[in-house]
Write a protein that binds this DNA or RNA. Structure first.
Lengths: 148, 148
DNA sequence: TATTGTTATACTCTATAACTATA
DNA sequence: TATAGTTATAGAGTATAACAATA
């Protein structure tokens, strides 16, 4: 069974298709949210803020798997858009606590709209069973392999 | 139905999970093939060469969706590894025709091994039915949305 | 002294533009 | 003049390192 494998075997793998289709998906999502003045990472930050209680920027960086300095830049830009507010934590004045504004929630909602639109576009030639199975399997993998 | 959507709705989408899991998959694949002296794009080039008849570098660039100058760099590195050969086309001496060597085929095979290993790792907590459905759906999407 | 946020710098990846050889 | 390949340059994105304020 140590057969020599070629392009066909590589292309058939889940990892290969996840990686390449993931890049396509990310590009299309980026194109959609660009109209909102956002990059995908901004949407990620908005989602992280909407998910749980207010946290420090350091904590956000860990959740998102990015450098703290990047959180600073993303938050700066979101603040400029009026999407987030920075409030110094009165208990530990080193901490900047980020929170979503109404505008931030509206932007996040429009990101979700864009993602749902793209889902329909991407899965147009899957039948309902296939689509549900894909959605379910990806949600399972997400829960297992993504930070949350 | 113009309900305000939040992080939960965004995270549940296929596009979101494809994008984020795709990045995870790509990172893991990159880590594996690094031991072979390769980056994912090198594997992509090897696979493209294995897929069809010999073509020019320009044609390769179109197939891979990258700039021609990147194909030059990738091919340089693969040639250094003894994985590809460059032969001037005798009919049009501007063209460099790339072809896989035995070493190149061996490297590609090891890339496929790595991808199959990662598949098992990634889908460890899916049952056989879920796994097959995921694999099938991704292959369908790949045929529809990736160049080939 | 350690930690949070910030700023400054550097690195990786890849595209665009300029150049060479051939057509 | 146009095209294949190559080389040089530039930009986007993000990390690492240095710094300031607070603990």
């Amino acid at each position: 069974m140590s057969d020599v494998k070629g392009a066909a075997e590589l292309r058939a793998t889940i990892v290969f298709n996840l990686g390449t289709l993931g890049a396509v998906a990310a590009d299309r999502f980026a194109a959609r949210v660009e109209a909102l003045g956002l990059k995908p990472k901004h949407a990620g930050l908005l989602a992280a803020l909407d998910s749980g209680p207010a946290v420090s920027q350091q904590e956000l960086a860990k959740r998102l798997g990015v450098a703290p300095s990047l959180v600073v830049a993303l938050a700066d830009q979101l603040q400029e858009l009026g999407a987030v507010e920075r409030v110094r934590d009165s208990e530990d004045r080193r901490r900047q606590v980020l929170s979503l504004t109404a505008e931030g929630r509206a932007l996040l909602s429009r990101c979700a709209d864009a993602a749902q639109d793209l889902d329909a576009e991407l899965t147009a030639d899957l039948n309902a069973t296939q689509r549900d199975a894909l959605e379910h399997a990806l949600n399972l993998l997400g829960r297992r392999h993504l930070p949350h």
